[in-house]
């Protein structure tokens, strides 16, 4: 795995655009004097991005477009097929985001950060697993990543998935349950060393514990990705907190995570925290408000 990272800070001046290709993701970011426009789609490549990604991470290319007509040409080109099926077209989805008008001189910087998805992810065992009471087993699991785009003022513009997600229903029947994400390749591996480093996926140690009094058969678990931190090691790629699922025999399994990464993640001195749990993003706004409130009174003695 390369020491260079495909994420980080980039500069985008007014009336210019940038076109990124990260694995199967086409990402077009345009900037006018008053807004950012973000367009994306997942397209099939002639050389399989999946194969490339398995070896060394997704193919990443970046093109600076100084002429607005170049961006328009990219958007108006015929839609390629979705990586999921050659029969389903993948047109661009576009969202526009207004620039903060309070700033006297808005920053040209854009910050790209890999993050785990906000929605929970359903992962499936290749064969149903039977656990004796109080027995626990540890597996390896790969989780998909999104790319979070922030403007220079640390204002989140949006988060775009690096590979196309499918949706699934996680519940005993159509009446009870919740919507979750699902990826074709998101299966549970019998051991962590069966997983491979990928620049568009994070690996995690998944421990399933039977807390039921009787033997229990588990065929799938739900991982609340928004409650996990994301780490990166230049040698071993992306990792998340270790996950423990207490299986109870119904759909109300309990979830725990801890920051002890498995030994497969490599020496801890090389591992850096890339993103905090996204569930904390909302809390951090409250914390900020509380901090400002305290500062207000502190300043007045």
């Amino acid at each position: 795995m390369s020491n260079e990272t495909w994420w980080g800070r980039t500069s985008l001046r007014i009336r210019t655009a940038q076109f990124w290709q990260i694995g199967s993701l086409d990402l077009l970011i345009e900037r006018t004097s008053s807004e950012f426009s973000v367009s994306w789609r997942h397209a099939t490549r002639t050389t399989s991005s999946v194969v490339n990604a398995a070896a060394s991470g997704p193919t990443v290319s970046k093109r600076h477009l100084s002429n607005p007509s170049d961006a328009a040409a990219i958007r108006s080109a015929p839609s390629p097929a979705s990586p999921l099926s050659p029969f389903i077209p993948a047109p661009f989805q576009t969202q526009a985001f207004a620039m903060p008008t309070m700033q006297p001189s808005p920053s040209d910087d854009l910050i790209f950060t890999p993050v785990l998805p906000q929605a929970p992810l359903a992962v499936y065992f290749a064969t149903p697993l039977t656990l004796e009471p109080n027995e626990k087993l540890t597996f390896g699991v790969c989780l998909p990543l999104e790319i979070k785009i922030e403007s220079g003022g640390s204002r989140v513009i949006c988060a775009v998935p690096l590979e196309p997600f499918s949706k699934t229903w996680f519940g005993p029947n159509a009446l009870y349950g919740e919507l979750a994400l699902s990826i074709n390749r998101t299966t549970v591996y019998s051991a962590l060393d069966e997983t491979h480093p990928r620049a568009d996926q994070a690996r995690a140690a998944l421990t399933v514990r039977n807390v039921n009094g009787t033997p229990l058969t588990v065929d799938r678990v739900l991982i609340p990705c928004s409650r996990l931190s994301l780490f990166h090691s230049p040698q071993t790629g992306f990792w998340t907190d270790s996950i423990t699922i207490d299986a109870r025999g119904d759909e109300h399994n309990s979830f725990q995570s801890d920051r002890s990464l498995p030994r497969e993640a490599g020496p801890s001195q090389f591992i850096q925290l890339v993103a905090n749990p996204r569930a904390q993003e909302r809390a951090s706004i409250n914390e900020l408000a509380l901090k400002n409130f305290k500062n207000f009174f502190k300043e007045r003695g």
Partner: peptide
């Protein structure tokens, strides 16, 4: 199943 809005389960 290849359509992103089709649920894998049910």
């Amino acid at each position: 199943l290849a359509h992103p809005e089709t649920l894998r389960e049910p």
